[in-house]
């Protein structure tokens, strides 16, 4: 069983994101970039499937500029077997990514395709769902637990607003990871050295027959308004009054 994991290169979670002066996007020049944390969880889950003898091969896929190879290398050092880099300098939006991944899926025929539930840069939370729709596969999103059954199905526990929900999906399927699925390992020194020898194939959107051009136009990117300082109220009556007459929420 092959497992495909998507790994996105994003601004590191420790970095305070800044909007570019001209309002066209966020600053990425001279900013530390890392693997999307939800994707790290995806790689960890795939590697655990392999260690448990459930998966035979783990393939890490990243889409974007040349530097995405660093992200793939990190996935290889965590234990993925090989990488695929779909190289392009155009701005990739969720639909384009889903289409490109669909083309890679057609080529590789994995049984499970793991993505993060969202990427911490645009927080779109769309790609996994779009990929499932394009591929006509079942989807299990926001996974906090994955159990592979012997009959080729899987039980996935999902984190939903009301609590936990368990769904059963048939392979092949799309899984998107939530925070509590696992705690990703850090790459060990021997695996870092081994990663050097693992192959990374490079493809282009043209080779995959996908038009990756953006469909959505960004008009302006702005920082969220600064939060106003809070106030203390003296009584419940005052609180209710303020909620009703000032905030107008009740």
């Amino acid at each position: 069983m092959k497992v495909l994991v998507a790994v996105k290169r994003v601004v590191d979670y420790n970095v305070k994101v800044r909007v570019k002066a001209d309002g066209t996007g966020v600053e990425t020049a001279n900013v530390k970039m890392s693997m999307n944390p939800f994707d790290e969880i995806g790689v960890e889950e795939a590697v655990r499937l392999k260690e448990a003898g459930k998966a035979t091969e783990v393939i890490a896929v990243s889409l974007g500029p040349t530097q995405c190879q660093e992200t793939i290398r990190t996935a290889l050092a965590m234990g993925a077997d090989r990488g695929i880099h779909v190289q392009t300098d155009v701005e990739l939006q969720p639909l384009a990514v889903a289409k490109l991944l669909k083309a890679v899926v057609d080529k590789e025929q994995p049984q499970i395709c793991i993505l993060g539930k969202q990427a911490i840069d645009d927080d779109a939370n769309q790609t996994g769902q779009m990929l499932a729709a394009l591929a006509g596969w079942p989807q299990a999103t926001f996974a906090s637990k994955l159990v592979i059954n012997d009959d080729g199905s899987a039980n996935v526990t999902r984190e939903v607003d009301g609590g936990l929900e368990t769904v059963t999906v048939k392979m092949p399927f799309v899984l998107t990871t939530d925070l509590r699925l696992n705690e990703p390992r850090y790459a060990s020194l021997p695996n870092i050295m081994k990663a050097k020898k693992k192959p990374i194939d490079t493809l282009t959107p043209e080779q995959l027959g996908v038009d990756a051009a953006p469909r959505l136009k960004t008009l302006k990117v702005a920082e969220p308004a600064k939060r106003q300082a809070g106030i203390k109220v003296k009584s419940v009556a005052e609180l209710v009054d303020k909620l009703r007459n000032e905030a107008k929420v009740i």
Binding site: Q69, E70, R73, T74, A77, Y186, A187, S188, L189, I192, M193, A195, K196
Partner: peptide, 14 residues
């Protein structure tokens, strides 16, 4: 190198 970058990352996390 990629290896050095990952080594630093691993030691940091460690």
């Amino acid at each position: 190198t990629d290896e050095q970058r990952m080594l630093v990352e691993t030691v940091r996390q460690f």
